[in-house]
């Protein structure tokens, strides 16, 4: 009888519309991405000017070693996988997996922060030089973007804990993931333009 009653029930409620948070996040993520891209554009433009004049870009006794940069990029990619996993887990109402995936994403994020700080310590770049200024501005702005993304993820984790999002109604988690993807994309460009190309 219970099964019959369940079959007779109306279909599950449609996901919340309109997706205000998702749209707003997409716009904010786009703006944040553009901030980093603008800085990278200036970095590349200044670098090209210096190199075309025959000088070297990075000052003597400074370095941007590849290993921390590569590790950071690899970790960011893993975090993108983890946040996708979190979205999927919330969609399947698998709360334990959702907590695990969100926690992992945050852990990966903190690891990248740690790697970046390590890079700052060993690079020897001074902020009073043009390369140093641009390096710290680009990576620092990206760190700020990451902190924003992590704060968003923490809030959404708490809301998942509170039962606000489940099944298809998971706009908040999808929004946080979208912002995180933008953070990963920005890091990919930084990795190529600064850590690889230098």
């Amino acid at each position: 009888m219970a099964a019959d009653a369940a079959l007779a029930m109306p279909p599950a409620a449609a996901p919340t519309r309109p997706r205000v948070l998702l749209v707003g996040t997409a716009l904010a993520a786009g703006a944040s991405f553009m901030t980093v891209m603008g800085l990278i554009g200036i970095y590349l433009s200044r670098r090209a000017d210096v190199i075309s004049s025959g000088a070297t870009w990075l000052p003597d006794k400074t370095q941007i070693p590849l290993t921390p940069g590569n590790l950071a990029f690899g970790t960011m990619l893993l975090s993108a996988v983890a946040v996708t996993w979190a979205v999927d887990a919330v969609g399947k109402d698998d709360r334990k997996m959702a907590y695990l995936a969100l926690g992992l994403t945050l852990l990966f994020g903190l690891s990248v922060v740690n790697l970046t700080v390590f890079l700052y310590k060993i690079s020897g770049l001074s902020v009073s030089t043009t390369p140093g200024l641009l390096f710290y501005a680009v990576t620092g702005t990206h760190l700020a973007m990451m902190f924003g993304g992590m704060a968003f993820l923490v809030v959404m984790t708490i809301r998942v804990l509170a039962g606000d999002y489940r099944g298809r109604d998971r706009e908040g988690v999808v929004s946080a993931a979208l912002f995180w993807y933008a953070t990963v994309a920005a890091h990919a460009v930084i990795w190529l333009a600064i850590y690889i190309t230098k």
Binding site: L27, G30, A31, S32, M34, T35, V36, M37, G38, L39, G41, I42, R46, V127, S128, T129, T130, L133, L134, Y136, A137, G140, T141
Partner: peptide, 24 residues
């Protein structure tokens, strides 16, 4: 949203640079 963030970036650079002697 696509253009003014670039200005924000420039202002960040400008602020940091100005605080550190204005070499750039």
């Amino acid at each position: 949203l696509l253009t003014l963030p670039v200005l924000v970036g420039v202002l960040v650079l400008m602020y940091v640079d100005h605080r550190h002697g204005g070499s750039t």
